[in-house]
């Protein structure tokens, strides 16, 4: 009797959940948030609770990999620019390091942390304090500009980066500012 109880007890604890599981799940839909509709475009929402609204002529791409949001902007001819929305946990290495990373992408030398600070334009949108940066350099032999916006939300650092040919970015600069202004928590 005693031995039987002991064996039962041991066999009970023998079953554990540490095995490979396979299952099928419906595709995760990206919910459109009803409150996020803005006058000038279609709403989009991310799984992390931020929504934004882009101008109609921006072409939305499916977000994947590290990207929470992705757009292509088309200029005259075959000219295109890329807009990405990325979030990293914590401070993602700090402001200076990230601005210098962007500078490196268009062949500009790194700045000291103080110089980075003075190159930043601070602005408050309806929801966030945003650090805006603008830089012009060269990539693949042609003048290239980056307009960037950096802010914190939900314990993550968010990076919105618009990169492309200088002329196209200059033409879209106002739209970019307006777009960043629409980014905010999903409203019910």
């Amino acid at each position: 009797m005693a031995a039987l109880s002991l064996i039962t007890l041991l066999s009970f604890t023998g079953c554990n959940r540490d095995e490979v599981r396979t299952y099928r799940v419906p595709k995760e839909a990206t919910p459109a948030s009803p409150g996020a509709t803005a006058a000038n475009g279609s709403p989009a929402a991310t799984a992390s609770g931020l929504t934004w609204s882009a101008p109609d002529h921006w072409e939305e791409l499916s977000a994947g990999g590290m990207r929470r949001g992705s757009f292509t902007l088309r200029g005259e001819g075959d000219v295109t620019a890329d807009l990405s929305i990325i979030a990293f946990p914590g401070d993602a290495g700090g402001l200076a390091a990230n601005v210098n990373r962007w500078r490196g992408q268009i062949g500009l030398a790194a700045l000291s942390p103080d110089a980075v600070q003075s190159s930043i334009e601070h602005a408050d949108t309806a929801h966030f304090h945003v650090d805006f940066v603008t830089m012009t350099g060269e990539a693949a032999g042609s003048p290239t500009r980056i307009d960037g916006a950096i802010f914190n939300h939900g314990g993550e650092s968010w990076f919105v980066k618009l990169m492309g040919p200088s002329e196209l970015i200059a033409a879209e600069a106002e739209n970019f500012r307006a777009f960043v202004g629409t980014i905010g928590p999903a409203q019910p």
Partner: peptide, 9 residues
């Protein structure tokens, strides 16, 4: 319509 998931503990 769906995703097949293989989960390794």
């Amino acid at each position: 319509d769906f995703d097949d998931v293989v989960s390794i503990p």
